[in-house]
Simulated assay, not measured.
Amino acid sequence: MNAEITSSQRRALRALSIAYFVQATGALSVAGSLPAISAAWQLTDAQSARLLSIFGLTFALAAPLVQVLFGHLRRRQLVLTGIGLFGLGAFAFALSTGYGGLVASRIVMGAGAGFIGPVLVALGSELVHEQQRGRAIGMVLLGVSIASLAGIPLAAWVASLWGAKVLFALVGLVSLLSGLNILLRVPDKSAGSRIRFSELASVLLEGKYLTAFLVVFFITSGVYSFYSFIAPLIRDTWAGGTHAVSAALAVLGVAGVLGNLWVTRAATRFTSEKLLITGMTLLILDTALIALLPKALSVLLLALVFWAFATDLLWPSQQRRVVELSSARHRGIALALTSAFMFGGIGFGSAVASWIYPVTGFYGLAAMSVAFILMALVSLQLSEKLRKPLVMAELCKNKA
């Protein structure tokens, strides 16, 4: 059997990757366009940052519930439903006249993303032969990397040039076009799988899983308590303007992609635990250096290279670790819950930042970020302690 990815499969995978790009850009563009959002609706930076929190927390609740309530539906149908909701939410954001409308639109976008994110990778992996699944997943996830590299800096530039309302109108339009692209290029052959709520709860409450989920929760809380205020930080602490924010976001994107490429090779030589510890340690040290070094923009951009590199060591390593510790039966649920905890951390971290930054400024934000990463390290150590007895029991069972 020919296991090569065909041209039609490539087109389908690219369509899924584009959808991931649009979702990631639309979800996180609030961070880069914070000043533009505040100006358009006369909000404080803290109020604007909470819109990122609302999206993240909505996604965290929606992702597992979608799997329980609608997981039996065909995967393409789930993705198209999510894209429709996400796009309509973006249009509603652009047309909102007050803060209540902005909040409601971000809830709709978060619910739509809950249909999209956990399903895209599964759908892409089932389009190809088993031998090509790893490559297919990489092609789908490329959309997220490109969003960091180009999408979010581009969104910040559009918002600064034409305003936040134009930005979100474009997000809505491109979302619906990406849905049409999937409808035309992705075959509707992937059936869903029904997940019982009791099974979801049993995974969530099992110690080895829960502590692993807390690792990603605290990592994203630490990262996004800093990242969500990157634009006000550059404006207030480094006296930088719109071009400085776009440059910082571009640096974060390039360094993040390099980190992702490096960890792909390093995964064959190092355990996921070692890579997680390395990434978190580098993140703590780099955040401390950003706080201590002179407040020159060139120094910040250099420090952000290492910050983004460390961050992108963490995401693939965490996903890999969840796959390693989960059984084949629970792997899909565990990965869906990992996504939920990740966006829950994004929402929680950016919410904490919206309370901390107006009171304590940059240094309070940096201290809070480091505290969250330290909690992630503690969760990782606890997770390993709970995991080792189970590994030993499995080895003894196999020997017997």
Rank of each mutant, 00 (worst) to 15 (best):
G151M: 02
L276Q: 07
D286K: 00
S7G: 06
R14I: 15
A328K: 13
G259W: 00
F86D: 00
R106T: 03
G253S: 08
V215P: 00
G241R: 09
L154A: 14
L183P: 02
L285R: 01
G98A: 10
R235T: 12
L252R: 00
G347C: 10
L205T: 15
Y99F: 15
T338A: 08
L382N: 06
V322F: 02
A150Q: 01
I152Q: 04
W262T: 14
S228C: 07
V216Y: 02
A49S: 14
A340Y: 01
G179A: 09
A239N: 15
A27I: 09
R320W: 05
F93Q: 05
A248W: 00
G82A: 08
T278A: 13
V299Y: 08
A376E: 03
R76C: 02
C396W: 13
T44H: 11
K274F: 09
A239Q: 15
L167W: 03
R50K: 12
K397G: 11
A46W: 07
A159H: 02
S48V: 08
S17E: 05
L177N: 04
A136R: 09
S202E: 14
I333S: 06
P187V: 10
A169W: 08
S228W: 01
S160Q: 13
A255R: 01
L304G: 03
A336M: 09
I116P: 04
Y224V: 06
I37W: 03
A393C: 07
A156D: 01
G207F: 10
E324N: 13
E126F: 09
A155Y: 01
V103G: 01
